[in-house]
């Protein structure tokens, strides 16, 4: 049945399609106009990213080096859970962090029932949307993005791009080198729903809190500037 459905549908589509060689079609596609990106909320890309994360109802922090990073994670954990435990994907960048210095006890692997906090390292991040991007795989089990109450995401400022188009340039390069990941996830904020009377509630199925820590050299007052841009 499926085979006859397929050929019947394709036969109809071929009659409806304009025809022409793959090259001609591709040439035509190249000529389509581009979609202008929105004006960023700040000229500096880190600041624009952090502002958009806040607009997405994420929380933000910065850390210059690895020592500061683990400290920032420890602080977050302690503030919300009086705990030092979290689960993290098998990302070598995460494994190489000096967790013990800050007393954090990460468990590496996929999230299990009852684990409230997961840590991910973003593959890249997009200032335009305030989104982080992860590829599913060992370093980033999809469930770690979706099942915890809190998600903490580290973003290296060198992995930050301005627009969605630039993000796809990076992703396409990665796919050429390493093949296609099963899933490419753009995440821009905690899980939310407005399905009951239009009232916005966070933590619909996924995290109710979404915390971004931007790693690398950033201007000293960038957090304050981002916060003041949103309030």
């Amino acid at each position: 049945m499926s085979e006859s459905a397929r050929s019947e549908i394709f036969a109809k589509l071929r009659t409806a399609s304009r025809g022409g060689s793959a090259e001609a079609i591709d040439r035509e596609r190249q000529c389509l106009q581009s979609a202008p990106a929105p004006m960023p909320p700040a000229t500096e890309v880190c600041e624009a990213f952090l502002i958009n994360v806040l607009k997405n109802r994420g929380s933000i922090d910065c850390a210059a080096g690895r020592g500061e990073t683990v400290k920032a994670v420890a602080q977050y954990l302690y503030q919300y859970f009086r705990s030092h435990r979290l689960v993290a994907g098998n990302d070598p960048r995460l494994a190489a962090m000096p967790w013990r210095d800050a007393g954090v006890l990460p468990r590496f692997g996929g999230i299990e029932t009852g684990e409230p906090v997961a840590l991910s390292f973003a593959h890249l991040a997009v200032a335009e949307t305030g989104a982080i991007v992860t590829y599913t795989g060992k370093a980033n089990p999809a469930a770690n993005n979706l099942l915890p109450e809190h998600q903490i995401v580290l973003v290296d400022r060198n992995d930050l791009v301005a627009t969605q188009e630039q993000a796809w340039t990076r992703i396409n390069q990665d796919m050429e080198k390493r093949g296609r990941p099963r899933g490419i996830n753009f995440i821009a904020g905690p899980s939310s729903t407005a399905d009951i009377e239009g009232q916005l509630v966070y933590g619909a199925h996924g995290p109710s809190s979404w915390h971004i820590i931007l790693l690398g050299d950033t201007p000293a007052d960038i957090l304050a500037r981002a916060h003041s841009a949103v309030t």
Partner: peptide
């Protein structure tokens, strides 16, 4: 400005 999850599988 966008939804929380935009995924490609």
């Amino acid at each position: 400005s966008q939804t929380a999850y935009t995924s490609f599988y």
